[in-house]
Structures are given as C-alpha cells and as structure tokens.
Amino acid sequence: MKKTLLASAVTLAMMGTASADQHSGTYAFDKKDAHQFITFEISHLGYSTLYGRFNEFDGQFTFDADNPANSSVEVTIDTASVDSNHAERDKHLRSEDFLYVDEYPRATFKSTEVVVNDDGDEAEVTGDLTLRGVTREVTLDVDLVGHGEDPWGGYRMGFDAQTELRLEDFGIPMDLGPASETVKLEISVEGIRQ
C-alpha cells in the first residue's frame, strides 16, 4: 500500500517559504478530488510491486507563515474506497486479513509536531495515525509543491508527503513474507484557503 496511508495521510502538511507574500490560514482539501491523491505501493511476495489508492478522503491543514511549527494537518480516509484496479483483490484488502473495513471504516491522521527545514520547502510532520483500530506515531516527509492565487480568486497551497508503514504495527495479520512487511504511502494534496 503505497507511500503512507493515511495517511497521511495522508496528510500532511505544513511548512512553507519565508517569502513576504505567503499567507497563513486554514486550507480545506480540494472537494473536487481532482487535485489530490493518496496512493500506496507494496511488494507482492518479492516478485512484483502492487500499486493502489484510496478514492475517498478528506482533510484540512492550518499554515502559520510566521511560525510554521504552529501549523497542523488532519486527514480522514474511507478505507473501503481502496482501489488496486482488481475487484477480487480489493475485496480481499477490505477483509479482516488487511483493512477490516466493516469494523474500521476510517483511518485518520492528526499531526502533533511540524519541523520545517531552513529553506522552508521541506518538513517532517509527526502525528498519530489510526489504522485498523491501532494508533501509532508516524512521520511524514513533506515537500512544498507551491502556493499562490488561483484563476477563480482563491488561494491554494500544495504538498507531497511520503511515509512507510509496517503492516504488523497496525495489527494487519496477513503475512506475505519478508519482502511484503512494509507499505509505502504517498499523499499529494492541494488545499484551498477558507
């Protein structure tokens, strides 16, 4: 399950450049889902790489340009929206062997710490990821994609975030061998200032 589930993600977020035109505020994820993705990848028995995504998720982040460490992010994922482009496999991923979506329909991430690099274009966002009823601290490596006014009079910021999870850390019982113990999760999100 690709780069950080979540998430991240999901999610993710807050850091930015120290430029004077940067705007603080709360940003909601783009509701059209056209500009955001939560994807994952995991080895299948060490013989191939399985890619997938979560089609339904939501979240927001707060960005503090004066003090980026005060920024935060929250993400909620509909785990039943898992999509690996194969109906039977997706059914298995939703089962008790993996995500157990009947019992745990949502995964969430809530940040607890944001550490921004000196250039302001990268950050480590640490937070609590709850997946399959288990909450663990995870860290997202976050890159600022960009920010600025959009053609419709709004203001947007975009981030890419990655992390890696051990399946057993979240109580996932399926054992596909040592090559398949971890999943990479990636969250790419565009927020619209509220």
Results as ranks from 00 to 15, higher is better:
R166V: 06
V134Q: 05
I192A: 02
E181C: 06
E96I: 07
D169Y: 07
K32Q: 14
S19C: 04
A65M: 11
A9N: 04
F40W: 14
W152S: 00
G46T: 06
L167I: 07
T139S: 03
T11Y: 12
R132G: 09
A87C: 05
R94D: 07
V116G: 02
R89M: 10
L6M: 14
W152Y: 08
G52H: 13
V101C: 03
G177R: 04
E164C: 04
E74S: 12
K3L: 15
T4S: 09
A18V: 10
P68T: 10
K110N: 04
S19V: 08
L5G: 07
F98C: 01
R94F: 07
G46F: 13
F54S: 04
S81Q: 01
F159K: 04
G52P: 09
F98R: 03
L176A: 12
V116D: 03
G177Q: 06
R193K: 13
L5M: 12
D169G: 02
P178F: 00
D97V: 01
G120S: 03
A123W: 15
D150F: 00
L140W: 13
Q162M: 06
Q36A: 05
T4R: 00
D160L: 12
V183H: 01
Q194W: 10
P178C: 01
S81D: 05
M15Y: 10
V145W: 11
D121V: 04
Y47S: 06
P173D: 15
M174L: 05
D143P: 05
V75K: 02
V189A: 11
S95K: 04
Q194P: 01
D64N: 07
D97S: 03
E164R: 10
L176S: 02
S81N: 02
V142T: 14
D64W: 00
Q60Y: 02
F63M: 03
F109M: 08
M157T: 13
L50M: 14
T163I: 05
D78M: 05
D118T: 10
G148M: 05
T135D: 02
D102N: 09
A18I: 11
G158A: 14
G133I: 04
Q22D: 06
G46S: 12
L93A: 09
D143W: 12
A87V: 14
V116F: 04
A161S: 13
A13C: 08
E168L: 06
G52V: 15
S24H: 00
T49D: 01
D30Q: 08
H92F: 12
E168F: 09
